[in-house]
Design a binder for these strands. Structure first.
Lengths: 161, 161
DNA sequence: GTAGTTGCAAACGATTTGCATTTAT
DNA sequence: ATAAATGCAAATCGTTTGCAACTAC
């Protein structure tokens, strides 16, 4: 299953005349087998042991390439950074506003919803639509518990840095 | 109408015990009256003439605050940057992949769609959902025309960086 | 063979931060 | 009165870039 996805992605690259280098294969495989929505730095830390020559610059270049090719998507990271996700089967993301955790949501209605918003967007704007992203923000289980423990009362005041 | 929105937003701030400074009012008013989805730098250029002491740092701080308060939303800007948008009435965005233009889409189905995705996300992830974002990517009118002019044939090859 | 890719280090630029001063409440 | 916000400049950090060496096709 992971291999299927890898082959399919590699074929997509071949079709677009993009060279398949060991680095690209390694990064692609990592993304397919890890759905932890890694930031660039995380990918680097994980893969450096396997390919000591691998550079950050190459990871940046490769990810940008994959995004253009449509096989990887970017997820905004409240803190300005970007996280990446292999886009095998369509899904959207729930993002924790407190800890930044990203959870995949596989919604049976997603294709329907995606078509609705793309159709409406095209109608209103005249854009030629190619893709869409949905993110839902909130508090994950752990952070709900953590924050509840910190202020057991219903205090409203909130630190704004 | 613009004033209503401003008053409503100011009350939101008051309710949360956030001080209303001239800078905050100025920035808020700018966002309410300009739906050009400005980047920080743009806001700075526009407002500096009106308040020469206004600093970039204050704009950054203020916008982050507004986002936390839920009266302004961030729009990811392919080039890593962030653009801001006053969130008066619910809408989502069509973003041009070529020139970065952002167009508001006011979809009558948006509330329905938002509820669907928030409900499903909560069910699958256990998150306590607070908000959601939808972005649709594609090519705007002008860029469609521009690109069609550049390669009148159906050439496939594409520069990647 | 050759255009495309890598890796390094340097450059870049957007955003954040520390701190003294000012200000809203 | 005082806790919070501003503005400045410096620091930070993620990302991009120029270029020589390397490699997939």
């Amino acid at each position: 299953m992971a291999d299927e996805a890898l082959d399919k992605a590699l074929n997509t690259l071949r079709d677009k005349h993009v060279r398949i280098t060991p680095q690209r294969k390694l990064i692609l495989n990592y993304l397919i087998t890890h759905h932890n929505h890694p930031a660039v730095e995380v990918i680097y830390q994980e893969l450096a042991p396997q390919m000591s020559s691998l550079s950050l610059a190459t990871i940046y270049n490769t990810l940008n390439l994959f995004v253009e090719m449509g096989i990887v998507i970017e997820i905004p990271n409240e803190n300005g950074g970007i996280r990446y996700d292999f886009f095998g089967s369509p899904h959207y993301h729930a993002i924790c506003e407190n800890c930044g955790k990203v959870t995949d949501i596989f919604d049976p209605n997603f294709p329907k919803i995606e078509e609705m918003i793309q159709t409406e967007a095209a109608r209103q704007s005249g854009y030629k639509i190619t893709s869409s992203h949905i993110e839902v923000y909130g508090l994950c289980d752990e952070c709900q518990a953590k924050l509840a423990a910190q202020k057991p009362d219903g205090a409203a005041a909130e630190a704004h840095v």
